[in-house]
C-alpha cells in the first residue's frame, strides 16, 4: 500500500500561500487513495512553477523543456503503456509555448493525464501575461495591456473532441481529487484545467476572485452531451466558472490502434536480429 510518505518529495520552493500546494497535495492524496505506487507513475513536466511539481512529489520523472511536456509524455506512454503518465504543467507551458502539442495530443487521444496549473500568469518569469490572462491586464511586457482574447482551454478541448475535459480549483481539494481520480480512471487523453491563484504576481485572480465565481456543476448534468458541454464552456469566465467534469467522450485510445503493443508493451519486446535477416533480400 502506498502512503503519503512514499510520495514525499523535496521541500517546495513555491511562495507561501501559492495555489500550487493544493494541487500537489491533492495529487499525492489521489495517487495514495488509488493505491498507485510511485514507481508505477511517470510525472512529466515542462518548465514553470507548476512544472516543478514532480520534484516535490515522488515518481519516475521527465522534467523536460518549457512547453514540451506532451511530446515526451506521448513517447513514454507508447513505449510502456503500463505506466501512469501524468503531466503537470502551467498555463504558459501548456497553452502558450506548447499550444501546438496540446492540439495534436488531444487529437491523438493517447491515454495520458494533463493537469494544468492555470494561474493566468507566468509565475516563474515574474508576472508576464499568459494565454489565459484576462483582457486589459497591464504588465511590464504588455505596456498597452493584454488585448488578445483569453484562451479558453475548455472550449478548445471540446471543439477538438477531447475525450475528457474538466475544470477544478486548488482550494476545493475534494472536488479536485475526485476529478483527478476520474481523469486517471478514464481511458484516453484527459485535460484538467486547475484554477490556481498566484499570490505573488496575479493580483486580479485571487482566491477571493475565484471563490466568488466558482460553482459545482449540477449532479444531473450529462458530460457526454457535447453541445451542452460547449455551452457550459462559453459561460462568461469573469462571471461564473463551472467546476467538475465538463465533457467526456468514451472512444478508443491511440494505443488501442497500435497493433504491435496489444499484448506486450514495446519496452518489454526483445530485439531479434535473426528475424530481420530476410530484409536484406529485398535489395537483390
Amino acid at each position: 500500500m502506498a502512503t503519503l510518505t512514499d510520495y514525499k518529495g523535496q521541500v517546495p520552493a513555491w511562495c507561501p500561500g501559492c495555489g500550487d500546494f493544493g494541487i500537489l497535495n491533492a495529487l499525492k492524496a489521489t495517487l495514495v487513495e488509488m493505491n498507485i505506487e510511485p514507481h508505477e507513475v511517470v510525472l512529466v513536466s515542462g518548465i514553470g512553477q507548476a512544472a516543478k511539481l514532480p520534484h516535490y512529489a515522488k515518481g519516475n520523472t521527465f522534467n523536460g523543456l518549457h512547453g514540451r511536456a506532451l511530446p515526451p509524455a506521448t513517447g513514454i506512454k507508447l513505449v510502456n503503456h503500463n505506466l501512469h503518465v501524468i503531466v503537470t504543467t502551467g498555463d504558459g507551458d501548456c497553452y502558450g509555448e506548447g499550444g501546438n502539442h496540446l492540439m495534436h495530443a488531444i487529437r491523438r487521444n493517447v491515454n495520458i493525464k494533463v493537469f494544468v496549473h492555470d494561474n493566468q500568469i507566468y509565475g516563474l518569469t515574474k508576472g508576464q501575461a499568459s494565454p489565459t490572462t484576462l483582457e486589459g491586464t497591464l504588465s511590464k511586457t504588455q505596456p498597452f495591456g493584454v488585448h488578445a482574447n483569453p484562451f479558453n482551454p475548455i472550449a478548445v478541448a471540446i471543439a477538438l473532441d477531447c475525450s475528457f475535459v474538466a475544470r477544478a480549483y486548488t482550494a476545493e481539494p475534494e472536488l479536485l481529487k475526485s476529478v483527478m481520480k476520474e481523469a486517471i480512471n478514464h481511458k484516453g487523453f484527459a485535460l484538467v484545467d486547475i484554477l490556481q491563484p498566484c499570490v505573488t504576481f496575479n493580483k486580479v485572480n485571487t482566491y477571493k476572485w475565484y471563490q466568488e465565481r466558482c460553482y459545482h456543476i449540477d449532479k444531473a448534468y450529462n458530460p457526454y452531451d457535447r453541445v451542452e458541454a460547449f455551452k457550459l464552456s462559453l459561460e462568461p469566465f469573469t462571471e461564473k466558472i463551472a467546476l467538475g467534469v465538463i465533457y467526456k467522450h468514451d472512444k478508443p485510445a491511440f494505443e488501442d490502434y497500435i497493433s504491435i503493443i496489444k499484448d506486450t508493451p514495446l519496452v518489454k519486446q526483445p530485439f531479434q536480429l535473426e528475424k530481420m535477416e530476410k530484409e536484406l533480400l529485398n535489395f537483390y
Binding site: P71, L78, N100, I260
Partner: peptide
C-alpha cells in the same frame, strides 16, 4: 518488426517524443 513509427505535428515534437521513448527504455 514492432517499431513504433509516428508522424508528429512538427519537428519540435519529434525530438521530444523520441526522447520520451528513449527515457522509457527503447
Amino acid at each position: 518488426y514492432g517499431v513504433m513509427v509516428e508522424q508528429t505535428e512538427d519537428e519540435i515534437c519529434a525530438i521530444n517524443m523520441a526522447l520520451g521513448a528513449s527515457f522509457a527504455g527503447v
